[in-house]
Amino acid sequence: MWDYSDKVKDHFFQPRNAGVLADANGVGDVGSISCGDALRLMLKVEPESDIILDAQFQTFGCGSAIASSSALTEMIKGKTLEEALKVSNQDIADYLDGLPPEKMHCSVMGREALQAAVANYRGEVWSDDHEEGALVCKCFAIDAVLIEDTIRANNLCSVQDVTNYTKAGGGCSSCHEGIEDILARVMVERGETYTPGSAPKQEVSPVGLTNLQRIRKIEAVLESVRPQLKRDGGDIELVDVDGKTIYVNMTGACAGCQMEALTLQGIQQKLMEELKEFIKIVPTKVSSLTRAMKG
């Protein structure tokens, strides 16, 4: 049984605003019957003010689909269309105190129904701009489409690569076979064959970031931790960046102290979050100058 929050259960058992809205002037139909989810959102918008006076829904779907629809109508009633369109799928999930990763698509569907209904009201045609695939990595909620696109865009050839770029596969390992299947399929397209043992790509630079941008980001992260290090009588200096290895020099009270490993780990975590890629931070004893001369 899914681990649904009380809020999800509440909105499922007592759905708000369910049923046909007779005088709706904006209707959005989204979903796919093959996936078992379909949602019709009906809006009554006041033309002078663009305010959503009323919103109702009809949903064919599971507990979280019905709860997401119900939550959405509650969230947008009384808002202007502009305000309502700022509601993201994450907002819907948050409103419900979270959804299981397998069920996040229910909130996405809510968000899309909103876009579709607003477009319908404005006399525009809304078309879905994202494609959703089967969930591959449950640990990090990564679906097949994202993995496939990332492999294609970066010519990836190993599970390790995919983990570095998307996080998928970096947890319990249960999705590795699934990732390998996708790798095999995409690599055939570019005339290569997938071999399980193959080494990850040498140079891992993140999608869209140049080396210079990366270094600036790294500097910014180091800058943000520097005050705290200084308070403890130490400092940190960026020495070099070699692919995904970042060399730093710890000075002062930090160098060699017991806390060094701990501190570095924290900084590494921060860097990974900022760069959105896997990196390794390695302390060296050379300063940036001497290393530059050697190399």
Binding site: F13, C35, C62, G63, A65, I66, E102, K103, A134
Partner: peptide, 29 residues
Amino acid sequence: IEGEAILLLLNKFGIAASSGSACTSGSLE
């Protein structure tokens, strides 16, 4: 209508059954 929703409501009445819907297994099919 969709099976998981049926099961959740049955469960509220203390009735346990199962469904072949995609949502109960977390798959898309």
